[in-house]
Simulated assay, not measured.
Amino acid sequence: MSAHQSQPSFPFQNTVLTGACGGLGQELARQLLARGAVVALVGLNRTALDALAATAPYRCAVYTPDVADPAAMQACAQDWVGRFGVPDLLIANAGVAGGFDTAQADDLAVMRRMLEINVLGVATTFQPFLDSMRAQGRGSLVGVASLAGWRGMPGNGAYCASKGALIRYLESLRAELRGSSLRVHTVSPGYLRTPLTAGNQFVMPGLMEADDAARALLAGVARGREHIVLPRRMGWLSRALGLLPAAWHDRILLGQPRKPRVGEAGATAIPGLPPRQ
């Protein structure tokens, strides 16, 4: 029995997925395709996306835009709807991470680009489909934020700021769509075993495998959960730490190695950054 046959109640059949070539994104794509969905694979690694599409060539289309470019995302949306129809599931998963130091002038460009991808990129993913999904009368919009957006962490100000802003944006959108047929879901992963965390030199409690995270995310969205924490126990830990006095909390975090900045060993690439002088 196929994965799709064993899960007949899965309610989504037409998905647009950004960040489809990353660790979590690849697992989401594989599991959505296994459930029989048609999937728009959006990302920057054409080779990885083509390999995914080859597993279900008649149920995929590959797009490689900058997710922060509204015109490029509009063009993707127009092509997808023309070929496969209006989606019932949007997963804005594209995101970048990296250490940040306000004292370093070059890091200001890192922060700008991180905000463009992690926050604006979600809005530019949703916007082209919103009216048609409302007219269709059903659909879920999923933004992949992070537990890092719940509280600032030393050396990680750009990423925390971007994910915190994303959480607030999704709250606003959810409020605007109350009473409609559309749902908005905020996903807050902790540490997932993906390329984004591969260079981390600090303790990563609750480290979760990407396939398990993808399975839990899709199950939570299918059940209509508006807030999904991966893994759930990390939400409890974050809330418990939040009860500490701020100075104690900061002291704990200051004792950990910081996330590598762009250009340092273990740093992940951030596409679209201007060349450093």
Rank of each mutant, 00 (worst) to 15 (best):
118 N>C: 09
61 A>K: 08
3 A>P: 13
233 R>D: 01
46 R>L: 08
228 I>D: 04
262 V>C: 06
171 E>Y: 15
219 A>Y: 01
42 V>E: 03
54 A>K: 04
123 A>G: 06
135 A>Q: 15
242 G>Y: 05
47 T>H: 11
94 A>L: 01
47 T>Q: 14
184 V>C: 11
50 D>L: 14
70 P>D: 06
44 L>G: 15
251 R>E: 03
182 L>H: 10
245 P>C: 06
134 R>T: 00
207 L>A: 09
165 A>V: 01
100 F>I: 05
265 A>V: 07
36 G>M: 11
76 C>M: 15
16 V>A: 08
110 V>R: 01
136 Q>F: 06
5 Q>S: 13
265 A>I: 02
53 A>E: 01
10 F>E: 10
244 L>C: 04
136 Q>S: 09
63 Y>I: 11
41 L>G: 00
190 G>N: 10
108 L>A: 11
161 A>I: 00
48 A>Y: 03
71 A>W: 01
217 L>Q: 01
134 R>V: 01
31 Q>A: 07
263 G>L: 00
241 L>W: 04
227 H>W: 11
225 R>H: 13
63 Y>H: 14
196 L>Y: 11
217 L>P: 01
53 A>V: 02
196 L>H: 06
111 M>P: 00
22 G>H: 03
131 D>A: 14
245 P>S: 02
113 R>L: 05
277 Q>F: 08
247 A>M: 09
44 L>A: 14
140 S>T: 11
11 P>Q: 10
128 P>M: 10
33 L>V: 08
13 Q>A: 13
224 G>W: 10
149 G>I: 09
231 P>M: 04
188 S>W: 02
174 R>W: 02
119 V>S: 05
192 L>Y: 09
138 R>E: 00
13 Q>F: 08
137 G>K: 11
25 G>C: 07
158 A>Q: 02
65 P>W: 06
217 L>F: 04
239 R>M: 07
266 G>K: 07
177 L>G: 06
150 W>S: 13
77 A>S: 09
137 G>T: 01
187 V>I: 15
112 R>M: 05
219 A>Q: 14
184 V>F: 07
150 W>F: 04
238 S>G: 11
117 I>C: 03
28 L>M: 07
86 V>N: 05
200 N>D: 10
45 N>G: 05
220 G>N: 02
156 N>Q: 03
54 A>W: 00
